[in-house]
Computed example of a mutant assay.
Amino acid sequence: MFDPKQKSKIDLEELRTFVTVAQLKSFSAAAEVLHKSTAAISYRIKTIEASMDTVLIERTTRKLKLTPSGEMLFEKATQILEWIQTMPDSLKQVNDGIEPNFKLVFNNLIYDPKAASHLLAHLNQRFPLTVFKLEMAVFMGVWDQMQYNDGQLAIGAPGFHAMSDDFQSRAMGVINWLCVAAPDHRLLTISEPITQQELRHYPVVNIEDSSDRLQKRAPWRLAGQQELLVPDMATKITCHEIGLGIGFLPSAIAQEEIAKGRLAELKLARIGRKPSPLSLVWRSSSAGKITAYLLQLFDAQDPLITPFIRLIDHSEPSDY
C-alpha cells in the first residue's frame, strides 16, 4: 500500500536517465540525448544503484549490460514513463465518458476473424487511448466472460434476457440448425427420415462450452452416442467434411457447405435441435461512449457489423 509519508528512493528524472541509458546502451549517447555530461549521467546511475542497494548495469570496456534487477527496473520504469506521458489524455478520456478498457466478447457461432480484425482497427482508430481486447467464447462461456472477466459488451450472448440487473440486453434473433454429414457418409444411403437408433451408431462432433464458473451447457448428443469435442467451428466443419462424425451446424453455414458439395443434410425423424436465441448484452454500470457507439453500429446495420449477424434469423423474442 502506498505510504505518503515514505519518501521515494528514486525520482522521475532518474528513471528517465536510467531508461535512456538502458535503451542506448551507452552513457555518452544518453548524455547527448539528455543534454548532460557523460560524468553527470554516470553519477546519476550510481546514485540510483546506491539508493536501491543493487547493481543495475554491468560496466565493461566495450558495452553496458543490464543485470536481472536492471532488466526488471527497465521494464517497470518504461511502463511508468509511458503512462505519465499519456496520463493527461487518458484522464480527459475518462471524464468524457470513454471506457479506458474495453473487452468485446463474441459468441463463437457468429465470430468472423476478418470482420473482427476490421472492427478492432476501426475502434482503435476512433478511440486510440482505450485498451481493447477481443474474446471468443462458447455457449455459457460468453456469459462467464461478461459476469466474471470484465466483459463490456457481448455479441451473441445466449438467450433473449440478461442474467442479472448488472446487464442490459437487446434481442438479435435466433440461430437455426441443420444436421449434416460428409456427402459419402453411410447414413445417406439408408431410407429417410433417419431414426435415433440409426443416428446414435455414429459419433457426434461438438464444441465444448468454454464457461469456467457458470454451469456448462451440454451440446446436442443422443444417449449412448460417442462425442468428439473440438475447440472451434472451423475444426468442427472439417471433421464433418472428412466423415469423422455427424452434427448440427448453423443452417446458413450448413447450406453454404452443402452448396459447395462438401456436406450433405441428414433428414431426421422427430429429432432436432431447437433454435438458439442470441442477444447483444452490455454492462450497465460502466457503459460509456464505446458501448453506445457499438449499439449505434448495430442499429444502422453498418458494414462493420453485418458479418456478425449474417447467420441470424431475425425472429421476434416472443417466438421463443
Rank of each mutant, 00 (worst) to 15 (best):
V180Y: 12
G173C: 05
Q197W: 08
L266C: 04
I253Y: 00
P250Y: 02
G151E: 00
L263K: 04
R213K: 15
Q215D: 13
A254W: 06
G173W: 05
E256L: 07
V230E: 04
L222S: 07
V205I: 15
I155E: 07
C179G: 07
P193M: 03
L229W: 06
I175Y: 06
S211C: 05
A264G: 05
S164R: 03
M172V: 09
H185R: 12
L214I: 15
E241M: 08
R217M: 15
S169Y: 01
Q196F: 03
G247P: 04
Q255L: 13
P219V: 10
L178W: 10
L229C: 02
P193Q: 02
I242K: 09
F160E: 04
D232M: 07
V180N: 11
F160V: 08
R186M: 12
H201R: 10
R200H: 14
I194M: 07
A218L: 15
G245M: 02
G245Q: 01
G156L: 09
L229P: 02
T238P: 01
A223F: 04
G173S: 06
E241L: 05
D232F: 07
L229F: 11
G151Q: 01
Q255N: 13
K260E: 11
A157F: 06
R221D: 12
N176V: 11
N206K: 15
L228K: 04
G261D: 00
I253S: 00
W220E: 14
S210G: 02
V142W: 08
A154S: 07
G159R: 11
E192D: 03
I242C: 06
T235P: 01
D209Q: 12
H240F: 12
A254I: 08
A252R: 12
Q168D: 07
V204H: 12
L228Q: 01
F167G: 04
M140S: 14
G141I: 01
P183G: 03
P203M: 10
S169E: 01
P219S: 13
N176G: 00
V204Q: 15
A162E: 11
Q145R: 15
P158H: 14
G141T: 02
S211F: 07
A162N: 06
A234G: 02
R213F: 13
W143G: 00
D165P: 01
A259T: 12
C179M: 13
S164W: 02
I253F: 05
I246P: 03
M172Y: 04
G173Y: 03
L188Q: 00
G151R: 09
E241D: 05
G245F: 00
G261Q: 01
G243V: 03
W220D: 14
T195N: 08
I258Y: 07
C239L: 13
K260R: 10
L214Q: 13
W143C: 00
L153W: 09
L187T: 10
V205F: 11
E241G: 00
L188P: 01
F167C: 05
L214D: 14
